[in-house]
Design a binder for these strands. Sequence first.
RNA 1: GUGGGUGUAGCUCAGAUGGUAGAGCACCGGGUUGUGGCCCCGGCGGUCGAGGGUUCAAGUCCCUUCACUCACCCCA
Length: 424
Amino acid sequence: MIKLVRGFKDILPADTALWQYVETTLRELLEDFGFAELRIPILEQTELFARSIGANTDIVEKEMYTFADRKGDSLTLRPEATASVVRAYIQHKLYAKDPVWKLYTIGPMFRRERPQKGRYRQFYQINAEVFGLHDPRADAELILLLMTFMRRLELSGIVLHINSLGCPECRPRFKESLKSFLADRSEQLCSDCLGRRDKNPLRIFDCKVPSCKESMQDAPSILDYLCHACQNHFFTVKEILDRFNIPYEINHSLVRGLDYYTRTTFEALAGALGAQDAVAGGGRYDGLVKALGGPDQPGVGFAVGVDRLTELLAGRAQGLEKRPDIFIAAIGERAQDIAFQWVQDFRLQGVRAEIDFENRSLKSQMRRADKFGASYVLIAGDRELDSKAAVLRNMTTKEQKEIPIQDLIGLVVNTIKTSITGSE
RNA sequence: GUGGGUGUAGCUCAGAUGGUAGAGCACCGGGUUGUGGCCCCGGCGGUCGAGGGUUCAAGUCCCUUCACUCACCCCA
């Protein structure tokens, strides 16, 4: 048997309703916030990711699905979406019409990591990106959007972490003092962190090795090194979150793995998920557009992990599945033939109708109708055809009434539609 | 890439010391003339992850391998 590739997964019908629910909920919210959808390819030139994410990040160094196409170009299945959105913003000169754009995109990402709970080699993200705005209200608005979304999904236990990583003005000063802090601490650091010390010292804040954590206790905090502009920016973001009653924790060790972040970074964490607990993350990337060859326009964005979100909502799939409004139980060839016509007629009227082609006993068909959760069953056999009236059974009240075959569709559709609106 | 755990029916799992593969759920059918859920009865369904070895005999013991899973790492 051919099985799916390691780390990939099928999303089966039992779960797709939940996925659709998550996607449409966020989609509607994004559009209320003024975002427009952008659809981008999942394949890009490798260089795009190397230059945006950072050549010496783990993602680029060892997690990308990269291959040479037949012409020899190096292509990569995207490990994240922001780089592509920025590429599109630049390539189509969107900034020329207006530097400010609010864009969202939905789709799969690919990273070749070791799979585990909440981590797949193909995973789905919904990305929101804002271009052209330096104003901290843009950052805050995104966080507001994200947390409103979490609230709308009725997710509790989501913790928001925020931090500021400074800018090219102030971050180098912090890095220097961090380096000198680490210089005489080689014994306390784990082997991974010793490597990070040169490449990307900020990452040491993320390390979970106890001795590293301990020695980082007295490490300098980026927040003490922010320049005036960055301080004010961060202050305003916090102020807005306070004003809108969005609780948050300042986490000065929240550095995030992608090189392009500046100033605000944030993550939404769900404790219930296990080790892979980030359901959303994002931040500001003011230098990225320019670094990729575009104009000097700032950007802010976030990504939501749909796999992890649906995992959190797993218990809530019941109410979401679609049940037929009506099941037609037809007994005998003649009835089956007419019933087949009826099902199609119902469907054209917007009524969810189902039928069984097997011509089984009425009992079987009733069981089937019940299994599907049909609200009504229309019973038709020789008896009904002769008397020119089929039987409509309400499956919850068990009430049955005869419906003249002449105007059957209209009468039944009417009954169903009024019963739906009446019950809500 | 590194560790731990687990692979028996579609699903959840039993099968001490080796001796002809089980249950519940699900599915299909039946329980007198054409009416669902509950209940009762019956049926379908497994090369016990794969390959090799030990043995008269292996789901069970040994080796190899693969997959899944959790954690490290990294991150959505």
